[in-house]
């Protein structure tokens, strides 16, 4: 394993009495397609927010390509791209304006930002809607536009929070192929999800997070241990059983 693209040490964050992230250590090698999976409320979004400089940790260190996110945010922000949860966007801009804006914010020259915006819109299958307001986009289109914004400055490290939630299969495939191409050139992707099949399909590295702690981390095969990721996940995180008797009326065999 070469130098870590993402290195997290003893990361902690509490909100009042609730410890959302309880000491996370994580190493993601450059060129990895890494997944961060966990149940709802496990601390995925909180961890990603801290790694991308949007939420101040209580303690711990985060290095992106060797740059400390919290000691030198300017340098660290320059090497990352982020698609936050819910993909919040400036929805009064058209798709093209939005991508150009993202490129200009990242310091691309105006002509280059415009050129890349056009190409990304094309690859993301948004060219026909490039001049429509993002406010009128569907969920899948918004996610694709957000991905375009995160990629326009060609960041070495890309963070995605639930990138495919609410995205139709065709758009999901477009996004998946784009990200695979992105990592095969040596760039790194870390994305959070609770869709196990997806993570299993695309990731070569996976970390399972539960109750603010990394339960297991490693290559896909190491973590699965011969089972499906879904089964490995449920074995590790535990499941809730025993509700069946209560709903005895449910189903067509009852009245």
């Amino acid at each position: 394993m070469g130098e870590s693209a993402i290195a997290v040490r003893a990361l902690r964050k509490s909100f009042g009495a609730k410890e959302a992230v309880a000491g996370i250590d994580l190493d993601i090698a450059a060129g990895s397609f890494a997944g961060l999976v966990g149940p709802n409320g496990a601390g995925k979004t909180t961890s990603l927010s801290m790694m991308t400089g949007l939420l101040r940790p209580d303690s711990g260190q985060i290095l992106i390509n060797g740059l400390d996110v919290w000691a030198d945010p300017r340098a660290a922000k320059a090497v990352i791209g982020v698609v936050p949860d819910q993909a919040p966007l400036f929805d009064r801009l058209s798709g093209q304006e939005l991508l150009e804006y993202a490129g200009r914010l990242r310091g691309l020259p105006a002509a280059e930002a415009l050129r890349r915006a056009g190409q990304l819109l094309d690859v993301l299958d948004l060219t026909a809607d490039a001049k429509r307001l993002v406010a009128d986009y569907s969920t899948g289109m918004r996610k694709k536009a957000a991905l375009g914004c995160a990629l326009i400055h060609n960041p070495p490290v890309l963070f995605l929070d639930e990138p495919l939630e609410g995205v139709d299969p065709v758009s999901a495939d477009v996004i998946r192929r784009l990200l695979t191409r992105f990592t095969s050139s040596g760039s790194t992707v870390l994305f959070s999800s609770h869709v196990m099949e997806l993570v299993e399909q695309v990731c070569d590295h996976v970390s399972i997070i539960d109750k603010g702690k990394i339960v297991v981390t490693g290559t896909m095969d190491q973590v699965r241990g011969g089972k499906t990721l879904q089964q490995a996940f449920i074995d590790l995180v535990g499941t809730r059983a025993g509700d069946e008797e209560v709903l005895s009326w449910l189903g067509s065999s009852s009245s």
């Binding site: 922000k77 982020v82 919040p88 929805d91 914010l105 914004c149």
Partner: peptide
């Protein structure tokens, strides 16, 4: 929330 686009840059 759109401000996060600017805040990350």
């Amino acid at each position: 929330p759109a401000f996060s686009l600017e805040a990350t840059a």
